[in-house]
Computed example of a mutant assay.
Amino acid sequence: MTYVVTEDCIACKHMDCVSVCPVDCFYEGENMLVINPDECIDCGVCEPECPIDAIKPDMDAGLEPWIELNRKYSRLWPNITEMGQPPANAKEMEGVPNKLRDLFSEAPGEGS
């Protein structure tokens, strides 16, 4: 089992999870984070840290597309090891529907 970042992170990009990850398996895109499933040690400490419940165990139903998205972009985006600032409008973006279709950016983040 591993953990994956899901659609709720898009345009919210809270980074509380990054500060608790013991193996630094988070990667930063322009407007979301992903977890490298090959580096995740399944400790689960990141899941309760996410204030918008965007991190899920890969065993949850329907997450196959998110597992692949996390795998793909963790190979393309820079590793992030320190907590940064979420976007100024993160609170307003919580719960917005269709983020993958309407808001997702393939661009890399700045990394740390």
Rank of each mutant, 00 (worst) to 15 (best):
K13E: 13
V34Y: 03
K99F: 04
C40G: 10
M93E: 14
F26W: 08
D8W: 09
P57L: 08
L100E: 08
T81G: 11
W66G: 02
G95P: 10
G44W: 04
L63D: 03
I10E: 07
I80F: 00
M93H: 05
D38H: 14
I80G: 02
C25S: 14
M83V: 06
G62D: 10
D38E: 15
E110Q: 09
L33W: 08
I41L: 12
Y27N: 12
E47Y: 00
C12R: 06
C21T: 12
L76W: 01
G44Q: 04
G109S: 03
C25N: 11
P65N: 03
D60L: 06
N36A: 14
P22N: 13
C25I: 07
P108E: 03
D53R: 08
V96F: 03
K91P: 00
A107K: 15
T81W: 00
S105T: 04
E94K: 08
G84P: 02
E7D: 15
D102C: 03
E49A: 15
L63A: 05
L69C: 06
I52N: 10
N98R: 14
C12K: 06
D16C: 11
I52S: 06
L76P: 00
N36W: 04
Y73N: 04
D58P: 04
D24T: 14
I10P: 07
R101E: 14
P86I: 07
D8Y: 11
C21I: 12
E82Y: 00
P37L: 09
W66D: 12
P87G: 04
I10S: 08
D60R: 11
N70V: 01
P37Q: 07
M15F: 05
D60T: 13
P108R: 02
V34W: 05
M59W: 03
G62R: 11
V4P: 07
H14T: 13
S105C: 08
W66V: 01
D102S: 07
W66K: 01
R101Q: 12
I67A: 02
Y3H: 14
D102W: 01
I35S: 09
T6M: 12
V34Q: 08
E64F: 06
N36V: 07
C12M: 10
V18F: 09
T81R: 13
G44P: 07
V96N: 04
M32E: 13
E82V: 13
R101I: 08
E30V: 09
Y73W: 05
E7A: 15
E47P: 00
N36T: 09
Q85R: 10
C50F: 03
F26S: 11
A90Q: 04
N89G: 10
E92N: 07
E92V: 03
M1G: 09
A61Q: 10
G62L: 10
